[in-house]
């Protein structure tokens, strides 16, 4: 009765997504795209827009609605994190990015728990894209507030540590990308594995319990990973924008 992972994936593919990347050539560039990831990303984007827009229409200052309260609380929580870690004057401009990042990653992580759907963050392209964006953002913020002095920290404490500090800097986006990807992809694989291991007859005898437990834990992991990614983004930016205390 035990099915292979490929069989489970094949059974779950009720929407008929192709198994191979979509390939075409634009000019001289050979472009490959993962259709399932893109479609799921667009769905998640629509969900985020639906959620935030419906939460921010007809806002009431004295009697906030449930959705409004949720969005406000998320926003205030993130703003608290940002203002704790850097000068509020520098942090205020980042708030829209941090807010979008957190809410997009959160929805992405949770969307994979809906049956037959997939988290955009279970594709390494999404997480690597986010991480690279954060990496360039960090460099940009560093140069904006310190100019060329931003690159001085590569030579500290000693100039011959340069290779190490470069590796350290490059490790940041790599770990950001693979931490999130590994957690979410692993969670989805385990969902499929549990489905494959436990046939229909096992379900009658309580075989669904591991799946339920794992889904609950995946919700937790989704929140935690979205939070960690956002928190690390804030931390990396705050490192490069803060004044050096001498």
């Amino acid at each position: 009765m035990v099915k292979s992972l490929e069989e489970v994936h094949e059974e779950l593919n009720v929407w008929g997504f192709p198994h191979h990347p979509w390939e075409f050539t634009l000019g001289n560039t050979h472009i490959t795209l993962n259709p399932k990831t893109l479609v799921m990303t667009w769905i998640v984007m629509l969900l985020v827009i639906l959620f935030t827009v419906s939460a921010t229409r007809n806002m009431n200052m004295k009697r906030p609605g449930k959705l409004q309260l949720m969005v406000e609380e998320i926003f205030l929580f993130l703003r608290g994190l940002v203002y704790e870690n850097m000068d509020p004057k520098k942090g205020a401009g980042l708030m829209s990015l941090i807010f979008t990042l957190f809410i997009f990653l959160l929805f992405s992580n949770l969307w994979g728990l809906v049956p037959t759907m997939m988290s955009p963050t279970a594709d390494v392209n999404t997480t690597a894209g986010m991480a690279i964006m954060v990496f360039f953002l960090v460099q940009f913020m560093g140069m904006r507030y310190k100019g060329a002095g931003h690159f001085k920290h590569f030579l500290e404490p000693f100039p011959f540590f340069l290779p190490l500090t470069i590796v350290e800097e490059l490790a940041k986006p790599v770990t950001l990308a693979f931490r999130l990807y590994g957690n979410i992809y692993g969670g989805e694989v385990l969902i499929a594995v549990l489905l494959g291991l436990l046939g229909l007859n096992t379900f009658i005898f309580g075989g669904f319990i591991p799946s339920v437990v794992w889904l609950a834990f995946s919700i937790f992991v989704g929140f935690i990973q979205a939070f960690i990614f956002t928190m690390l983004t804030i931390a990396y930016i705050s490192q490069v924008v803060k004044e050096h205390e001498h």
Binding site: P21, I31, T32, L33, N34, T37, L38, T41, W42, M45, T100, L101, F104, P120, D123, V124, N125, T126, A128, G129, M130, I132, M133
Partner: peptide
């Protein structure tokens, strides 16, 4: 498994 989807995801974001 990294391909142009990465760029597309950045644009989406």
């Amino acid at each position: 498994g990294i391909n142009y989807t990465l760029v597309a995801q950045i644009i989406n974001f």
